[in-house]
Amino acid sequence: MSDPVSALNRVTFDGFVKVEEMGPRGMITLRGDHALPEVKNAATGVAGVNFPGQRECRVVEERGLAWMSPDELLVMVPHGEADTAVASMESDLDGTHSLAVNVSDARAVFRIIGPGAREVLAKLCPVDLSPEAFVPGTIRRTRAAQVPVAFWMVEEDVFELVCFRSVAAYVFDLLKTAAIPGSEVGYF
């Protein structure tokens, strides 16, 4: 048995914000009709949070649910629990058209920490990151420079960003470059 490793093995960078790659994180793609109570219950059952509305993200430490589309949810659990969570949801949803896939390893997760975090993301993503427009509790899927990503706020000054594993190094380099001290924009 070997320990699972994340794409960049928890690498960090200190610029005008701190950028950290988080270790392995449990993530499951759950496809199913959100209108069906069994779909909702299967998800809330493993994640331990309330079912999210459109573009909402409810995360408590490593557990949570994020709304991805009308028939897709991101279910988050500790990495080691992902397979069991999939099995549990499949069992709950037996007989209901649905699909639960463990995608924990297909992703890389970063934290961007500090008062400059909004600006770092605003250099890469065509999203209104002003304090009025972007608040904790929302998940935004978009692109960062040339790759699709998703991000949400854990709390003020702390963002989590998810990308595909294969481009983890690229995304880390983007975040590092955007956080080089001296390149603060002074906009927000």
């Binding site: 459109q54 573009r55 009308p70 065509p126 935004r140 899927r141 978009t142």
Partner: peptide
């Protein structure tokens, strides 16, 4: 119309 996001063309 599905997720409600108003995005710029490069997202699409």
């Amino acid at each position: 119309p599905y997720c409600g996001v108003s995005g710029e063309e490069t997202e699409f």
